[in-house]
Design a protein around this nucleic acid. Structure first.
Lengths: 121, 121
DNA sequence: TGAACATATGAACAGTTGTTCATATGTTCA
DNA sequence: TGAACATATGAACAACTGTTCATATGTTCA
C-alpha cells in the first residue's frame, strides 16, 4: 500500500517515511499551542527568573527583598517580575507602597521540581 | 528581636525584611543548579525544538522526516537536534545512512505535559 | 504639602540565538 | 571506486533579550 513518496520542494531532502510523517502530523497540537508552550518555557529559561521563582517558592517577598537576596538592581528585578506576572507564574499584592510577590499557583512548583528531577539523573 | 536592618550598598534600596531574605537564602539550591535548570528550560523555549520534541513523542523519526513534517530545512533541524541531544532530551540510533531520533526518557514527556497543563487553565 | 522611599518603565546597548548558506562527512549501491 | 544521498557543521547575519541608566509613578508620614 505504501509507495515511494515524491520529493517535496520545500525541503532539501527526500521524504523517507511519508506514512510516519502523516501519522505524527495528525497527533500534533495546534501551531498556536506549541508556540505558547515554547513561550512559557522561554520564561523559565533565564537564571534570574529561575532564582526569583525558586525564592518565591520559599516565601512571599517584596521587590527590594529579592533584589538584595539575588544581589541585583531593583530595576532588573522589577522588569523580570513583570515578565513572570504576564506569564501568570507570579502574582502580587500591595501593602502601602510595598508590593509582595508570590508564586501564582501550584503548577509552577511542579514545573520547577520536574526540571530539577531531570537534572539530577 | 528584629531590628531595623542597615542598608546594603550593592542594592539601590533598603532591605525591608532581612529575616525573610536570610531564611530564603538558606533554602536556595546552589547557583550552579539554578543555572543548569535555566539552561534546561532554555532548550524547551523555542518553537522549533518544542515541535520536534512533541513530534518525537508520537514516533521515532529521521532528520528528513522531521524537516518535511515541520516544513523546515534539514540543516536547521539538524542544528536543533544537536542542541536537544546535548541537553539529553533526545537520543538517536543509526541505521545505515539514516539517523533516527527519539525522546531520551519519560521525563521529557512529563515536562511537556506539565507545561501544557499550565497553559490550559 | 513636600520629602523620602518602593516600585515601575522606557530607551539604549551588548550579548545571545536561530536560520541560512555553503560545504564536509559518512554510508549505500551500482 | 564514484555517484547519490542523509546528515552534520562552521560562519555570518538578523532578530531577540537582559541589564543598565534615567526617570516616572504612587504611597507614607512629618
Amino acid at each position: 500500500m505504501s509507495h515511494i513518496s515524491p520529493p517535496i520542494e520545500r525541503c532539501d531532502c527526500e521524504v523517507i517515511h511519508q506514512d510516519v510523517v502523516n501519522q505524527v502530523r495528525s497527533t500534533l497540537p495546534s501551531e498556536e499551542s506549541l508556540y505558547d508552550l515554547a513561550e512559557l518555557y522561554k520564561v523559565f529559561g533565564d537564571s534570574t527568573r529561575i532564582k526569583i521563582l525558586w525564592s518565591l517558592d520559599a516565601a512571599e517577598m517584596c521587590v527590594c527583598d529579592i533584589a538584595v537576596l539575588l544581589n541585583m538592581t531593583q530595576s532588573s528585578i522589577s522588569h523580570q517580575l513583570r515578565i513572570l506576572k504576564q506569564a501568570h507564574l507570579v502574582k502580587n499584592r500591595k501593602e502601602g507602597k510595598i508590593v509582595f510577590y508570590s508564586l501564582d499557583d501550584e503548577h509552577v512548583r511542579q514545573i520547577l521540581d520536574q526540571g530539577m528531577i531531570h537534572l539530577t539523573e
